[in-house]
Design a protein around this nucleic acid. Sequence first.
DNA 1: GCAGGATTCAAACAGCCGTTTGAAATGAAC
DNA 2: GTTCATTTCAAACGGCTGTTTGAATCCTGC
Lengths: 226, 226
Amino acid sequence: MSPAPAAHDTKTAILDAAEAVFAEVGLARASIRRIVQRAGVNLAAVHYHFGSKEGLIEAVFNRRVAPVNARRLELLAAVEAAHPEGALPVEAVLEAFLRPMQEAREADGRADHLRRLYGRLVGEPSESVGRMMSRQFGPVLQRFGKALKRAVPEVPEPVLLWRLLFTVGAAAHLMLDPLVFKKLTRGRCDPRAGAEGLAELIRFAAAGMRAPAAAGAGEGDQEEGS
Amino acid sequence: MSPAPAAHDTKTAILDAAEAVFAEVGLARASIRRIVQRAGVNLAAVHYHFGSKEGLIEAVFNRRVAPVNARRLELLAAVEAAHPEGALPVEAVLEAFLRPMQEAREADGRADHLRRLYGRLVGEPSESVGRMMSRQFGPVLQRFGKALKRAVPEVPEPVLLWRLLFTVGAAAHLMLDPLVFKKLTRGRCDPRAGAEGLAELIRFAAAGMRAPAAAGAGEGDQEEGS
DNA sequence: GCAGGATTCAAACAGCCGTTTGAAATGAAC
DNA sequence: GTTCATTTCAAACGGCTGTTTGAATCCTGC
C-alpha cells in the first residue's frame, strides 16, 4: 500500500536519466536501453515502474513541466496582487510567464537538460505529448491572455493570444539548442550565458505586445478563403 | 552522363511522398517503407536514387528550403533597391524574411506539407539537419542582421540578431502545428486561415525590433557566471 | 525462522528499421 | 536484333526497438 522508499531510488534514477537522454537526442530517438544503461538499472525496470515508454515520458513531463506551469500562475498571481487595480506592467506579466523555465534550470544542478527538454517537448510530433502540452498549457494560456488584456487594454485579446504564442515559440526556440544560436551568430549570442537571453526576450516581446493592433482586427470573424 | 528523364518520375514521386511523411510524423519517425508505399515505388528505389535516408532528407531540404532562402535574399535586395539610402522600413525587411515560406505554400498545391516540414526541420535534433540548417541559414541571418541594423540603427547589431532569432522561433512555432494553436486558443487563432498569422507576426516582430536596447547592452562582452 | 508481496534480473519475444543483394525488366544505340 | 547501361523489383540481411516472461532476489510483517 504505502510506497516502499527503496523503489524510489531506481525510479528517480530512471527519471533523471530519461530526462537527460530526452534532452540530448529527442524523444523519438531516445531508446529505453540507453536510458537504463545511463541510470544503471535493469531494462525491465522501466516497464515495471512506468508501464511503457509513453508512461515514462508522461512521468518526466509531470515531474518537470507541470511544476513550471504552476509556478507561472503563482508569479502571475503575485503580479496581480501587487497591482490590484489599473494596468499591469507588461514586462512583469511576461517575466511571470518566461522566468520559471530559467528558474528551474538554475535551481537544479543538471546543467542544460531541462531547457532542451522543453524544446523537445514543444517540437515533438508525438500525439500523446501534444495532448499533455495542450491540457497543461491551455488554461495557463487563457489565464495569461486575460492578464495581458489588463496590461494592454487597447489590443484585442485574440491578438494578444497570437502574440503570446509567438513568445512561446521564441522561448522554445531559444531553449531548443543553444549551440545553433551561438554558431549562427558567430558566437555573439549565447543563450547558455545565464539570464541574458531571457532579458532580451522579455524586452522584445513586451514591445511586440504593445504594438497597435491592425485596424479592425481581432473583433470580427470574417475570413475569406475556403 | 545526361540524366534520363524517365528516372525523374520515381525520383520526384519519392521526394513528394517523403516531404509529406516528414511533415506528418517528423524526420525520425518517418520510415522509408512508409514513404515508398505512399510514392508507389519499390523500397530499394530510395537507396538507388538518394543513397541513404540522410541523402533523401538532404534532397528534400535542397528542393524546398534552399529556394526559400534564395527568395528571402531576393526580396531583401528589392527592399534595399527601393530605399538606396536612409533607413529601411522594418516591416519590409521582416516581410522579406517571413513571406517566402508563406509564398511557397500558396504556390504549391500541397496544402500544409511545406509549412509543417519547416517546423520539423527547425526542431529536429538530427545532426546532419542541423548542419544543413546552419550552412543555409548562417549567411541569410548575417545578411538580414545587417539590413535590420540599417532599419533600426539605434539598436546594436548583436541585439538585433537575438531578436531575429526570436522571430525565427516564433515563425517556426507558427508553422509547426497549427492545430495546437487553434486548440490552445479555443479556435480563436487559426494559422491555416491564410496570411493572417504572418501579418500578425510581422506587426509583433517589427515592434519588438524597435524596442530600445538595454543600457550598455550589445557592445561590451562582460558577463558574470561560471 | 518463515511466509509473501515488492522489486530486480537475464533472456528472449515479435516487429520494424535502414540497407544490401542479385536477378529481372526496361530502353536507347548501333 | 543484339548489346549495354540504366532502372526496377522481390527477398533477405543484421541490428535495434519496445515489450514480455518467469525465475531469482530483496525486504517487510509475523
